[in-house]
Simulated assay, not measured.
Amino acid sequence: MNRYSVAEFIRKTEQEDKGEGFFELETERLLEVNLEGLVWAKAGAMVAYHGKIKFEREGVLEHGVGAMFKKALTGEGASLMKANGHGKLYLADSGKKIIILHLQNEAIYVNGNDLLAFEPSINHNIKIMKKVAGMMSGGLFNVRCEGTGLVAITSHYEPLTLRVTPGKPIFTDPNATVAWSGNLQPDFQTDISFKTFVGRGSGESIQMKFEGDGFVIVQPYEEVYFQRQS
């Protein structure tokens, strides 16, 4: 039954402090950041906050001239923002499920569209998927997150983690690939035989190939990306 009095609805859905620290899942699709300083987040992900918090888009020279050119090539120069201050910040992204990972001197690559937030102790670097740039209309970049701290990523529905082991490569659809371990460098390939069945603009099936020892996280959903118009 989904019928409540106003008082019942408030009791059922109101914010609750769970004592989980810096990142806290209010629901599986809404992240609470207990902010006492700085957090990096996906631009546009703020849904509410209270306290004194200032928002600032990531500057084009934030990480040097090289990063500026990468951002220009990806068309995602304002994909991240900094939230600085004290209070509670609530983040979400299109109703996607949120996963909090605690990196311990580790690295992970995250699809640029699936990175929600991370602590300032995490170093981040945008990586362009050069080999796929001419094959897809968007989703051309990922972010390498490295260090010790919390990273929040998003997934449409329940994610699946696949182990990559030597001699047994894993192939994934780029539109369904959320993240992978920092030691893996995927290759891109096309399968012409799939062209009849796949509604891609290129008429080909584009696949990511992961080889080595690590993991890759996929979602049961093909996310479609759009390049920002200049």
Rank of each mutant, 00 (worst) to 15 (best):
E106N: 15
F23L: 15
V151Q: 11
G59C: 01
I128M: 10
E26G: 04
L35I: 12
V132L: 08
L101W: 09
L61I: 01
G138I: 04
L89N: 14
A92K: 09
L150M: 12
S137K: 09
E119D: 13
H156G: 08
L140Y: 04
Y157Q: 11
S137Y: 03
H124Q: 08
H86Y: 14
V60A: 11
G75F: 01
V132A: 12
F55W: 14
I98W: 08
G75N: 05
L38V: 10
M46S: 02
F55P: 01
G87H: 13
N84R: 15
T148W: 11
K88T: 14
K71D: 01
R29S: 15
A133G: 00
G112P: 05
L89Q: 08
K71Q: 01
G95R: 13
L101C: 07
N34E: 09
K82W: 03
Y157R: 14
K127A: 07
S79P: 02
L38T: 12
N113Q: 11
R144L: 00
M135C: 02
M129T: 01
R57K: 13
S155L: 10
Y109I: 03
C145Q: 10
F22A: 04
V143H: 02
K96M: 12
K70T: 03
N84G: 07
A48H: 09
P120N: 04
A133N: 01
L89S: 07
M136W: 00
F22V: 15
I126K: 02
M68S: 07
D114L: 03
G64M: 00
T74C: 03
